[in-house]
């Protein structure tokens, strides 16, 4: 416990109008963890992630990353510090080929800084990264317009965009939603590989089976509050979690 956590969330709260979307959530994240955030629809998972990544301003509470307070920083600064995320609804630039979609993240000042002040050949880097997430080079998928790619590839593209920023923490917002079992099965190894490389990952997920295979820790949200935190198996045994998922017993 001597190690300072990579990310520390303290009493994070957001209310929209009168509704408490997120209410006093706290947790810590150590380097190399894969934290799963689960909970029923509307339990505040995405809002929590939006708060951490700066897309939504917190009503109260703090987010501390590498000992630095990043609460309510603009999103682009948070990304530059090393937290990258994906979005649940993928909105690529449809008219552009897949690899051209990678240009914008590769134009990021973070990429430039990490590469020692120069960008290099973005097109080549883009193709390499896409191959890593499963855009087979042989059949030229990376050159196809995003508008003709199936959802599975668009999700991989979204993942590749996050990887290209070489973040310390990656937040994956429902990466598996809308994908077939086979597609999920082909993405899981990519995530496992990222963990081996020492990345820290937060995943919001409804596909619990796949999540539990890779998650080292899970927190459960319900009505904007954290109701459980721990190892996957134990968490799911808890009465409160069962109640949240199966509905109340009254």
């Amino acid at each position: 416990m001597s190690e300072t956590p990579l990310l520390e969330v303290k009493g994070l709260t957001k209310s929209f109008g009168g509704v408490q979307a997120v209410n006093g959530i706290s947790f810590t994240l150590n380097k190399g963890d894969l934290l799963g955030i689960i909970g029923p629809n509307g339990s505040g998972k995405t809002t929590t992630v939006n708060l951490i990544s700066g897309f939504v301003k917190a009503t109260s509470g703090r987010v501390i990353f590498k000992g630095r307070d990043i609460t309510n920083m603009p999103p682009y600064k948070i990304v530059r510090l090393g937290i990258a995320r994906t979005f649940q609804m993928v909105k690529p630039f449809y008219q552009l080929p897949a690899f051209k979609n990678m240009i914008i993240p590769l134009y990021s000042p973070r990429v430039k800084a990490l590469a020692g002040g120069k960008y290099g050949d973005r097109d080549a880097v883009a193709l390499d990264l896409l191959e890593e997430v499963g855009f087979e080079r042989d059949n030229q998928v990376a050159y196809k317009a995003a508008s003709v790619l199936p959802q599975g590839y668009l999700k991989r593209l979204e993942l590749a965009k996050a990887i290209s920023l070489q973040p310390d923490i990656m937040i994956l917002d429902e990466l598996f939603s809308g994908l077939s079992l086979a597609e999920v099965a082909s993405i899981v190894p990519i995530i496992e590989k990222l963990l081996l490389e020492g990345k820290t990952i937060i995943m919001i997920e409804h596909r619990l089976k796949e999540l539990f295979r890779i998650a080292s820790r899970v927190i459960v949200l319900n009505f904007g509050e954290k109701i459980a935190d721990g190892v996957a198996k134990e968490v799911m045994e808890s009465d409160e979690v069962k109640k949240a998922y199966l509905g109340s017993e009254e």
């Binding site: 603009p74 530059r80 914008i104």
Partner: peptide, 13 residues
């Protein structure tokens, strides 16, 4: 087209 996505690349739009 999608300012959110550009911001998410660490670019100050």
């Amino acid at each position: 087209d999608n300012d959110r996505s550009v911001m998410n690349a660490g670019i100050n739009i």
